[in-house]
């Protein structure tokens, strides 16, 4: 019993000695996957969804915040124009904590409003992943997001679905009507 108490005491002393070294880490090493993502044929009115993976390569837990960012001037890919509205992109969650040497996934949703003027566009925006810190130097990584929209707006109603259900309903109604009328005549 005494031996167990002594061992616990020694462990506690070592823990207290080690904690400050981890807490005072004076470096930072993070990564994000993917570095670039392209969404093709997104019709205005539709939503695309994908995941970002954040890697914390440090010995301490880190919190990360995600936000849409306008690329610095001249940094967009050739042919791409600035993404019209950052509010069309959402993150779930938009802040996450990652354990030492761990990773976390964040879902990104891109929803283009159902408007004709957003068809046939090529846009670029950057998704910023910032490691929260009170140190003087901080790090932010960007994933390039390239979006090209379809030449047509997504249909609000599915015409084929409406015809597929409506037509048999009509036939069923007509059939029932003639059947009951005929039966009434015989009676």
């Amino acid at each position: 019993m005494l031996r167990h108490v002594a061992l616990a005491g020694i462990s506690a002393v070592f823990l207290v000695m080690l904690l400050p070294f981890f807490a005072l880490a004076d470096d930072i090493n993070i990564g994000v996957v993917p570095a670039e993502i392209r969404i093709d044929n997104l019709s205005p009115g539709e939503t695309a969804k994908f995941e970002l993976t954040i890697h914390n390569n440090d010995a301490i837990s880190r919190s990360f915040t995600l936000a849409v960012s306008v690329p610095p001037e001249g940094q967009e890919k050739t042919g791409a124009t600035q993404f019209p509205d950052g509010s069309w992109i959402s993150f779930s969650p938009d802040r996450t904590e990652v354990v030492p040497y761990g990773e976390a996934n964040v879902t990104v949703m891109v929803a283009i409003p159902r408007e004709q003027k957003w068809t046939s566009q090529d846009w670029e925006t950057w998704l910023g992943v910032t490691a929260e810190s009170t140190d003087m130097l901080g790090v932010r990584l960007y994933t390039r997001l390239l979006v090209s929209t379809n030449s047509t707006v997504a249909q609000r109603f599915n015409v084929r679905l409406l015809v597929g259900i409506g037509l048999p309903a009509l036939l069923l109604g007509c059939g029932g009507f003639y059947y009951f009328r005929r039966r009434a005549r015989f009676n």
């Binding site: 004076d26 470096d27 930072i28 090493n29 993070i30 990564g31 994000v32 996957v33 993917p34 570095a35 670039e36 993502i37 392209r38 969404i39 093709d40 044929n41 997104l42 019709s43 539709e46 695309a48 994908f50 890697h55 390569n57 810190s133 140190d135 003087m136 130097l137 901080g138 790090v139 990584l141 960007y142 994933t143 390239l146 379809n150 997504a154």
Partner: peptide, 21 residues
């Protein structure tokens, strides 16, 4: 409809700083 989502080129971006304070 059909939406194509692709990761283009190399897929991990990472940097480190050896001093932050």
């Amino acid at each position: 409809g059909t939406i194509t989502i692709t990761m283009t080129g190399a897929n991990e971006i990472s940097i480190s700083l050896d001093k932050t304070q």
